[in-house]
């Protein structure tokens, strides 16, 4: 493969907390940034070294995960404001409950207060034609005061438009389920619970879906590295001594 000879990535978990996208205001991550690159020996800004042998030696695993010292482009997502008839109507209807209308690479999203998500999605479905819930998923940003994003991707057949609705929640918060508006959310929310441990209030069947019921961790949370899974379960049920 000619396009990426970098030998990194395999062994190390994400030890250095990367900055969080999707944060509108400059975050404390900025302050932490100068400290992070310190242990770095050589700037990975040189993708050029063609012989991986030298590059691999000079570039120990931790360096790969640390932030490069080159002044990066904005550490937050470079969003542009999103304005349309839809945003006007929604802003009128929900006011301060919607904190942000933005768009990035031509894709629009809105950020909603957690307790207003269901009314907003309901209004989008019944008043604005967004009748297809494409996906429900989450992203974990351990550094943030509200570390979890829950993202609803909606599509409207009549407008041929796709938007995302985001809420930000704290660990242990229980956002309300969207299954009563879109039946498809049943399995999708169960998967979010399975992977992130976010329990949805009012969900008819809030249990794990892909992992075994007795599994103890929520794998897609950042504190769980790829090697640090439920070793006890693997040992007991699969008879693999190392637990891997």
């Amino acid at each position: 493969m000619p396009d990426d000879p970098k030998p990194e990535g395999a062994p190390e978990p994400e030890s250095a907390p990367p900055s969080e996208p999707a944060t509108p205001e400059p975050k404390p991550a900025e302050a932490a940034k100068p400290a992070a690159p310190a242990p770095e020996a050589k700037p990975p800004a040189a993708p050029a070294p063609p012989k991986p042998a030298a590059a691999a030696a000079a570039k120990p695993a931790p360096a790969a995960a640390a932030k490069p010292p080159v002044p990066k482009a904005p550490a937050v997502m470079a969003v542009t404001p999103w304005e349309s008839d839809l945003t006007k109507a929604l802003a009128e209807e929900f006011g301060a409950a919607i904190s942000e209308f933005s768009s990035y690479v031509g894709q629009s999203f809105l950020v909603v207060k957690a307790d207003s998500a269901i009314p907003v999605i309901e209004s989008l479905k019944f008043n604005h034609g967004f009748d297809y819930l494409v996906d429900v998923t989450a992203v974990h940003y351990p550094e943030r005061p509200e570390p979890l994003d829950v993202i609803y991707i909606l599509y409207s057949f009549s407008r041929n438009e796709r938007i995302r609705v985001k809420i930000r929640i704290k660990d242990g918060d229980r956002p309300r389920t969207v299954t009563k508006v879109h039946t498809t959310a049943d399995w999708l929310e169960r998967e979010v619970y399975d992977m992130f441990g976010i329990e949805f209030e009012g969900h008819p069947n809030m249990k794990r879906i892909l992992l075994p019921d007795e599994w103890s961790t929520f794998p897609l949370r950042k504190e769980n590295s790829i090697l640090n899974m439920d070793q006890r379960w693997v040992q007991e049920n699969l008879g693999i001594e190392s637990g891997q």
Partner: peptide, 26 residues
């Protein structure tokens, strides 16, 4: 660059989408 995107295609079985969040690293 730091950002996120959702792109989907018409796979033989239906809508196959990828939602990728980048933190600006590799």
């Amino acid at each position: 660059p730091v950002g996120e995107a959702y792109v989907s295609i018409e796979a033989p079985k239906g809508e196959l989408g990828y939602y990728i969040v980048s933190d600006g690293s590799t």
